[in-house]
Amino acid sequence: MTEPPAPERIPRQPLRHRLAERGVDYSLLLLVPAVVVIAGLFLYPFLYGISISVQPQSGGGAFANYTNFFTDPYQAGAIVKTLRLALPVALVSVGLAAPLAYRCRRDFRGRKLVTLVVMLPITFGSILIAQGMPRVFSPYGWVNLLFKAVGLPQVNLLYNYWGTFIAAVLTALPLVFLLLMGIFGGIDRSLEHAAATLGAGRAARFWRIILPLAAPGLLTTFMLACVEAFAIFPSAILVGQPDNQTHVLTIPIYQAASQNSDYTQASAIAVVLTVIELLILGLAVLVRGRLFRGPATGGKG
């Protein structure tokens, strides 16, 4: 970044100064390693995945991997099965977590404990949840022993749709709860107090003040939970029925990559998965734009 020879008669600021005015100076060099890592290990692999997905290992034209996937009703049906799992999981997680997060939005004595319990599944991950589920939900498990003790019929909640559903909710709900707790907590109390001063009851305050302010956050959280549940993998195998009811999109990816060592086919399905996820996120951004976008925090002064 040396000073360029001044070509015109009007004296110009040195290039360095002009760049600095727009925020470009040597401190940006601190960004370089991070940009290199993200570009090299996240963006480039994405492009690499797209490029190998159109070079099928088994031959047959550029789009053979995609036509293979979409023409096989069993494989392509995975999209529907994933949607049938991810949407209810996201809906139930937000539906259960939202009232709880609303009540936990202020500091209270048990908050650390609640946070600890909620963080457990995030820390331990879906594998540990799937490992513990048989003892709780199998025909001889604790839930069915309890049901038998109180005279309820036996329920079959393992190695089918419901096994994966429960595992997914157990892992998704805590994340949703943490996000929503931040969203509800970020709404300034003074707005609520103002409404109360003007005579709004508790219900009115919730429906007319809190909910409209939280709506964009609720929507974003729902979409994030949906995307997260879209790529559910270990629990679909361990507590689901991976060849039928929980044959979600990640299963053919796993089979192609790990069992057939066909990374081109696996990448093609992963591209399909990514496109659907980006569509969901794009939809969230689009709908969000139509909701209230003012400040949720009151003035400080």
Partner: peptide, 17 residues
């Protein structure tokens, strides 16, 4: 994006690379 997108969207491509 890498925080939002679940790992399986890029895990296989990354492994292939």
């Amino acid at each position: 994006l890498p925080v939002i997108l679940p790992p399986l969207t890029y895990a296989v491509q990354l492994a292939a690379l």
